[in-house]
């Protein structure tokens, strides 16, 4: 039934919950079942997957956004572009056009509507995409350049560079705002990694809200499940959210993480835990896949505010 590739996003409302540990170990577990697997590091502000997968990078290219540029001899200084730009990225001072690249989102409005056709678009690099392989898994990551704000553009470039492997694991940035949305929007299902602490639960509820707004199926991975309190488990039960994997608070895990080792390799006793979990996740995912491919949902007008 499930022949088409499966894309699973690994996300969490807050950072430091073990997202990368889970994504990397699941990638290896899936690969061990004979599937072709790619790991995409979409946490482009703080990419960490390479520390564990130690990939050989074989190609590297810039992630770019489009940026307008003025053809001076065509421009008459009318100021229309400055009025149009919704992000204050253009000013026209004394009939001279000034463009502020850090503010530009590359929406294309100015070049589209300049009455003189005096704006053309050039490519502006905002980060780097690296492609390689490590630990038996295809590897792609994006790195946002320091001082840049266009994380979503770098994430989109990572996804564009992806291959057609049977399984894709997207290691997402933390939080619930634009970068996460970009990372999650094309995934088939989402794993939300959390800890059973008050902070963890609060951030999980936000992540759940986001995932629901995107109309994605999701389930929970509970890290350090024996820590904190039992409110997270109670919440999941109430909301009917399956918990597909629980990992103990084991100081050795923190230590292998600190050394940059892959959990299921450094502590093989955890391998069966992940094998079981992968089976559960796989079954759960295919149970939720529509028979026919349905493109990204856009059929319910809903303002996603809290």
């Amino acid at each position: 039934m499930m022949d088409r590739p499966l894309k699973i996003a690994v996300a969490s409302g807050k950072g430091g919950t073990g997202k990368t540990t889970v994504a990397v170990s699941l990638a290896l577990t899936a690969a061990a079942t004979g599937k072709t697997v790619q790991y995409l590091d979409c946490d482009v502000e703080e990419p960490n997957g390479h520390i564990f997968l130690k990939p050989q990078i074989h190609s590297r290219f810039p992630a770019t956004v489009r940026l307008p540029e003025v053809i001076e001899k065509k421009c008459n200084g009318c100021g229309v572009c400055a009025d149009i730009c919704a992000y204050n990225a253009i000013a026209v001072v004394k009939e001279k056009v000034l463009i502020f690249p850090e503010l530009c989102r590359g929406c294309g409005a100015c070049s589209l509507f300049c009455p003189q056709g005096a704006l053309v678009e050039i490519s502006r690099p905002v980060g780097t995409v690296e492609i390689g392989a490590g630990a038996g898994v295809a590897f792609i990551r994006g790195v946002l350049s320091i001082g840049q704000i266009m994380s979503p553009a770098v994430i989109a470039a990572v996804k564009d560079a992806a291959g057609d492997q049977e399984i894709t694991l997207l290691d997402c940035p933390p939080g619930t705002s634009c970068p996460v949305i970009e990372a999650v929007r094309d995934a088939d299902a989402v794993l939300l990694v959390t800890e059973p602490t008050p902070f963890g639960l609060h951030d999980l509820t936000l992540a759940v809200e986001m995932t629901r707004a995107l109309e994605k199926p999701f389930c929970v991975v509970l890290n350090r499940f024996d820590l904190g309190d039992d409110k997270t488990v109670a919440y999941c039960r109430e909301e009917n959210i399956p918990i597909v994997l629980s990992i103990a608070d084991d100081r050795r895990i923190a230590e292998t993480y600190a050394r940059g080792e892959i959990l299921i390799e450094a502590l093989p006793s955890y391998a069966p835990v992940f094998t079981d979990a992968w089976e559960r996740i796989w079954t759960w995912c295919i149970g939720r896949m529509p028979e026919k491919e349905v493109p990204a949902p856009a059929n319910r007008e809903r303002t996603a505010t809290s």
């Binding site: 149009i84 992000y87 949305i181 529509p290 349905v294 990204a296 059929n299 007008e301």
Partner: peptide
């Protein structure tokens, strides 16, 4: 902005805007 696709696979005639993805650039309005 996308054309909603029904479970039957039929594409709607008119597109919809998903507010989650709208960045407010106003290009469509213009």
């Amino acid at each position: 902005i996308e054309y909603p696709v029904a479970a039957s696979g039929d594409r709607a005639d008119k597109p919809r805007i998903n507010p989650v993805f709208c960045e407010g650039c106003r290009v469509c309005v213009r």
